[in-house]
């Protein structure tokens, strides 16, 4: 027989002490026992740093803390992967620490689970990041939109169909971060509507042009498809003349198979090498690795550092503007 213990016969201070000895995943399960346990866990003031929701054939809800994290899996239990997944129905959750899916005393639907987590771990909604993967088509978009309010970050992976990607982009607005692994639009002007938005960060993994680069209005941008050194050189010249005024941090790569020459990369641009000591400081401060760094200055006196790193036939570039 399992040992039992009448926890609520202890003074509150001792109960809190017991809870402080529990990991956040166990605290979460404990918080589902009753309103009293929910309030106790909430009173601990444990804060999640982010809540990430991965949507594919199932939903993976990942709750992250400073040094730990755990996830809940919600599956519709159907063997047919194309069967509709109704997020408004009560659903059990699975987690690594328990062998069987579980439910609180009062059955929860996905929205209840999410709200409960956001409440007990003192999350504001703007910590939510959602990633759509292949298989997410089985979810009814309107229900998802109503359930996932105030999404902060949105990512759409390569496996999602173009039609579905467009539906997703239409459903989630007011984002701070957007990641697109593929351009779902036939007309390039459509994707440019996203480049001109003032996100905190945009990540684009498909082919992009110089025009696309110049339209970027986000503070941070990450392009993963390599471009030519000429395209980057042209971008720098536009930046010096005043383009991309909000840009602070850009990551991109240059196809190195034809061997990149710094002369071509920085042709026609006034730049100075950053001293070795200063390079080390910048690398440490920004957590980057670099084997060469130059500083450029634009016409309004704003400076930027271009850090490069040669790795496996690609030249990786990090561009930091200092306003």
């Amino acid at each position: 027989m399992e040992p039992t213990f009448p926890l609520f016969r202890l003074p509150e201070k001792a109960i809190v002490h017991v809870l402080q000895n529990m990991n956040s995943d166990r605290l979460f399960i404990f918080s589902l026992v009753s309103t009293k346990t929910k309030n106790l866990v909430t009173s601990l003031g444990l804060r999640a740093v982010s809540v990430y929701i991965g949507i594919s054939f199932e939903i993976c809800l990942n709750v992250n803390f400073d040094t730990s994290g755990w996830n809940l899996i919600f599956s519709n239990g159907s063997n047919d992967q194309n069967a509709e997944f109704d997020v408004t129905r009560p659903i059990s959750a699975s987690t690594f620490s328990l062998h069987q899916p579980f439910q609180p005393s009062t059955p929860f639907n996905f929205s209840d689970w999410l709200n409960h987590i956001l409440t007990i771990f003192c999350c504001t909604n703007n910590l939510l990041a959602v990633k759509f993967r292949a298989g997410s088509e089985q979810f009814e978009m309107e229900s998802l939109k109503n359930t996932l309010k105030n999404v902060n970050g949105l990512a759409i992976t390569e496996g999602v169909t173009d039609i579905h990607s467009k539906q997703i982009l239409n459903s989630f607005k007011d984002l701070k971060k957007l990641a697109l692994e593929r351009n779902p639009f036939e007309d390039n002007c459509e994707v440019q509507k996203f480049f001109i938005q003032n996100f905190e960060k945009i990540e684009f993994c498909d082919v992009y042009s110089l025009d696309d680069m110049l339209l970027v209005n986000s503070e941070k941008v990450r392009f993963t498809k390599p471009i030519s050194q000429k395209q980057f050189n042209q971008f720098l010249k536009h930046w010096i003349r005043g383009s991309n005024p909000r840009l602070q941090d850009m990551f991109l790569s240059i196809d190195n198979t034809t061997s990149v020459s710094r002369e071509v990369l920085l042709k026609g641009i006034d730049c100075v090498d950053v001293a070795e000591e200063e390079q080390q400081e910048i690398c440490q401060e920004l957590s980057i690795v670099s084997d060469y760094m130059v500083e450029i200055r634009r016409n309004d006196e704003t400076t930027a550092v271009i850090a490069t790193k040669d790795f496996e036939n690609n030249l990786y570039i990090r561009f930091f503007a200092y306003y």
Partner: peptide
């Protein structure tokens, strides 16, 4: 002593789902 006692109780709740926790804490 308080800490060891409380950790001992916390261990009783390890690996339990909500229904099992209700039984353990004799709610």
């Amino acid at each position: 002593l308080t800490s060891y006692c409380c950790e001992r109780i916390a261990r009783m709740l390890r690996g339990k789902n909500t229904q099992e926790m209700i039984k353990v804490i004799t709610l």
